[in-house]
Write a protein that binds this DNA or RNA. Structure first.
Lengths: 251, 251
DNA sequence: TAGTGGTCTAGACCACAAA
DNA sequence: TTGTGGTCTAGACCACTAA
């Protein structure tokens, strides 16, 4: 099953035109995101890496720098380089799945699929995904539970053209991000989102088990692939009485 | 008046123990934050910098890398390195004043002081500011306007001990941050905040001119000084129908 | 064509952590 | 003392931009 890790290329290609440090970055990144290397594990030393890939130390460090900047690893002088532990702070800086998010908050996550199907892009959706109005979109609506209590409703819209047949999975179990990456090689690499408060509509209030008109924290997110193409338009309705965002700022 | 720029040291100290790239980074950073170099201005080329400071190109690039990462500059291959234009995206990463925030959104900001005085720290406030319950706090409550329409209510709590006499200013005009920095040498350098949605209390609804129970976006922020001491506990109630937060995420 | 930033090499010395 | 990451040098060739 662990096909990504098994198929993993262990060498770099000096004639591919792709910068060496990027190739090394990708190789290391995959080892981390595939969970082959766990949080706290020590990475090979810089010396070991430069020997393995036959590059200079500066090139190895450039690859590691990118991973540090991404928050995936951290360095300790005199000790080594280690896989980072995910932190809550990442909530407003990195794309985090509901499952990860809830685990970090100490809740047991659950999912109930409300509806799945194809729809034609509305004007709002078309604008978000940069496709023509009417383009075929995959629509997945899920109720998200925390410790078996409703926490959020997630409405996801994907460009069907980019991921045909994605509907054959069971999204109560399989994270959407994994399906996109494994089946279509699409990685959600960046996103923009807006956060606002609004009063729950009767339908949303009923699904979330709260009083009509209760305050809802709405997050709308447009995720783009590694090629910069919009892939998903996500609308999340969080219960205002249960869900709090947290982040850190600099002066 | 431009004392910072004038007093600016233009050389690096090779025996200070401070890494050369950090010294260059600081010098360049000051030129940008002091507005000596404006957004869009081209920085000296890497070659010019390495000659000026008599270091290797790698050292210059390390200094520039830090500025790029901070979002203060950007590079264009074949063209040069330029001072970045501030972006809205910084809203969720940097501490931004209401005034700056509104200007970026294209609104004309306004302020009305609702109340000013000393209070004794409640349990919540004491926990946030890490002081004993009952400690004397400065309390400033302001109504914030955008294009003359109510947008938010800000309730600010400061540790009085750290800024005695701060109440002698008029906070409809003077930004709190400026008063802290100019009069007490306190710079708000980092902060943590939470974001949630809740239903407006009758009092808040009335002040904001919205219907009772309308959805409000609440931001609570604890700001710390350059010494890591909590200085301000801020509660902001934004109108859900007018205020939207925006930010960018990475995969 | 000249000048810019992007990538890369093959070294070097250092501060720090752990044995 | 050994091995780690932190800093730094003095080059090199490349792709891209603009004149």
């Amino acid at each position: 099953m662990n096909s990504v890790a098994e198929m993993q290329q262990q060498h770099i290609n000096r004639s591919s035109g792709l910068p060496l440090y990027l190739q090394i970055y990708e190789l290391l990144r995959r080892r981390i995101t595939s969970d082959e290397w766990q949080p706290g594990d020590m990475l090979p030393t810089e010396t070991a890496l430069l020997e393995k890939y036959d590059v200079s130390r500066a090139t190895v460090r450039q690859a590691l720098d990118a991973l540090v900047q991404e928050g995936l690893i951290y360095r300790e002088r005199g000790r080594g380089t280690f896989v980072a532990h995910p932190t809550v702070e990442q909530g407003l800086v990195r794309i985090v799945s509901f499952t990860e998010d809830m685990r970090q908050r100490g809740f047991e996550p659950g999912t109930e699929v409300l509806s799945v199907g194809l729809v034609q892009a509305s004007e709002e959706q078309a604008r978000a995904l940069q496709v023509p109005v009417g383009e075929e979109l995959v629509h997945i609506e899920r109720l998200r539970l925390a410790d078996n209590e409703p926490m959020s409703i997630e409405a996801s819209f994907l460009v069907h053209r980019l991921c045909p047949n994605i509907l054959s999975h069971d999204y109560a179990v399989l994270p959407l991000r994994d399906a996109l990456e494994n089946d279509y090689g699409i990685r959600m690499e960046s996103a923009t989102q807006t956060i606002r408060a609004f009063n729950a509509s009767p339908r949303i209030a009923q699904k979330l088990g709260i009083r009509k008109s209760s305050a809802i924290l709405v997050i709308e997110r447009i995720s783009r692939s590694q090629y910069g193409v919009p892939v998903e338009f996500l609308q999340v309705y969080h219960r205002g009485d249960r869900y709090v965002l947290y982040n850190e700022l600099r002066g």
